[in-house]
Every structure is written in structure tokens, then in C-alpha cells.
């Protein structure tokens, strides 16, 4: 267990503080608004996209600073991130709700809260369904008492996916996946001995995260085709990469 504890604390050290993430996104949004005249303010959807874009920048920076990720060539780093960027965004959102959210409201990366009912009353059918599905998953993760170590392990399992096509050093990605899997299993057994099969239950959430993320991508791509997404963003580049 001691080596496992050491391994998990190494993974945790790479985690940015929520306050840092929040202030970085808020600063970016304030700069953006300040650069705009009174009559071309960003609408709500564009602000949300900017938040997602800034959060994505942060996730790429997080991955880039992971010691295990650094062991991979840049080509492999790109392929893995292009495959899982939307899952990382969804997982990041879900875990923020578990850590800071309240029932019935959504906690944004900027620290603001929005009532789910408000979102559902204004959003279209697709977005409403996405929000509801995400909230259901938040409830499941809350019921599982997901903790920070488990959240980090799930992020690593999403990022180090050996099934991604055209990964060159597949064996290295598999090794990391196996190591993190073992660390997650030992951690859940050690911290929640009474909660039978917490490990299995956590892993069962990953296909749900994947499914929601694919729907998010499709939704964003449709909005992009309508010209609703801010251009020249990491978000649009990642969307394009998947559709080229």
C-alpha cells in the first residue's frame, strides 16, 4: 500500500488547485469582455464556450505536465488528447459538481451557480438531455463517494487509452493504464473496504462519460456549423480534428 500511496500522491501533485483554475478562466473572460464594445458582448452560449475552451487549455496543460505523459512522443500525446479531450472536459465538469455542486444546481468553473431548472427551461432538447444525463451521473458518483484520488485515476484512465487508433507506443500506454487501474483498485479496497465493488462501479461510469462526451461533441459540432461557436479556439480545432 505504501508504494500505492506514493504513486497516488504523485498523481495528485499534478492536480491544479480549483481556485487557480477558476481565477484563470475568470481573468480570461474579463479580458474578453473588456476587449468588446458595448454592442458586441458575448451571449450566454459563447461565454459557456469560452469557459469550456479555457478549461480545455488547462486540461492540455495538466496532461503535458504529467510525468507519465511526458514519456510519450508528441505524436502520441496529440493522438491521445484528440481522442479523449471531450471525455476529460465532461469528467472535469462531473467531478466539479461532486466536489462543489449542490443538488439542483450546476457549479461552473468560474464559481458561479446556475439552477438546473433555469438551464432546462432555456436550453433546447439536445442540451437539456445532455444536462440531465450529466446530472444523473453526478448523482451516481456522489452515491459512490468519489474522492479526489479516484477522480485523478479516472482522468488518467481516460487519457491513457491503449485502444486509440494510431498510437505508436501502445505498450507504454497500456503499462500506465494497468498501473493506474491497480492503484485505483487498491485505493478503493483500502479506503472503502465495506463498499463492495466500488472499483467496478467507478469503472462502469467511464463508458457513460464516453457516451455523454460523444453527444457533447456532436452537439457542439452542429452549433459550430451554425456559426454559434467562437472561432479560432482550441475547442473548434479539436472538433475539426475529429471531423477531418
Amino acid at each position: 500500500p505504501s508504494s500505492n500511496t506514493g504513486f497516488l500522491s504523485e498523481l495528485l501533485q499534478g492536480e491544479p488547485e480549483e481556485s487557480q483554475v477558476c481565477s484563470r478562466v475568470v481573468a480570461s473572460l474579463l479580458r474578453e469582455q473588456a476587449s468588446r464594445g458595448k454592442h458586441d458582448r458575448l451571449n450566454t452560449f459563447s461565454i459557456m464556450c469560452k469557459m469550456a475552451d479555457q478549461t480545455l487549455f488547462g486540461l492540455v496543460e495538466w496532461a503535458r505536465n504529467c510525468a507519465l505523459f511526458k514519456e510519450l512522443k508528441v505524436e502520441d500525446q496529440m493522438v491521445l488528447l484528440q481522442s479523449c479531450w471531450s471525455e476529460l472536459l465532461v469528467l472535469d465538469h462531473l467531478c466539479r459538481q461532486v466536489a462543489y455542486g449542490m443538488d439542483g444546481s450546476i457549479y461552473l468553473v468560474t464559481g458561479q451557480k446556475i439552477d438546473v431548472s433555469t438551464v432546462l427551461s432555456q436550453a433546447g432538447a439536445t442540451l437539456s438531455s445532455l444536462v440531465s444525463r450529466a446530472q444523473d451521473l453526478v448523482s451516481k458518483l456522489r452515491a459512490l463517494h468519489l474522492d479526489r484520488q479516484e477522480f485523478v485515476c479516472l482522468k488518467y484512465l481516460v487519457l491513457f487509452n491503449p485502444d486509440v487508433k494510431s498510437v505508436q507506443d501502445r505498450r507504454q500506454v497500456e503499462r500506465t493504464q494497468e498501473r493506474v487501474n491497480r492503484a485505483l483498485m487498491e485505493h478503493t479496497l483500502h479506503t472503502h473496504p465495506g463498499q463492495s465493488d466500488k472499483f467496478g462501479q467507478l469503472l462502469l461510469r467511464l463508458p457513460e462519460v464516453r457516451s455523454i462526451s460523444l453527444q457533447v461533441e456532436e452537439y457542439l459540432y452542429q452549433r459550430h456549423l451554425l456559426g454559434d461557436l467562437p472561432c479560432n479556439s482550441l475547442l473548434t480545432e479539436m472538433l475539426h480534428a475529429k471531423h477531418t
Binding site: V74, M78, L81, E237, A241
Partner: peptide, 17 residues
């Protein structure tokens, strides 16, 4: 513009500069 230019830049940028 290369389709992955920004991601490539972010993963390759040199922090020391």
C-alpha cells in the same frame, strides 16, 4: 493552417522562454 496547429504548439512550447 495545419488542422492540429494549436494543440501541437501547446504540447511543444518551450516553458523556459
Amino acid at each position: 493552417k495545419k488542422p492540429n496547429a494549436l494543440l501541437h504548439y501547446l504540447l511543444n512550447k518551450d516553458d523556459t522562454k
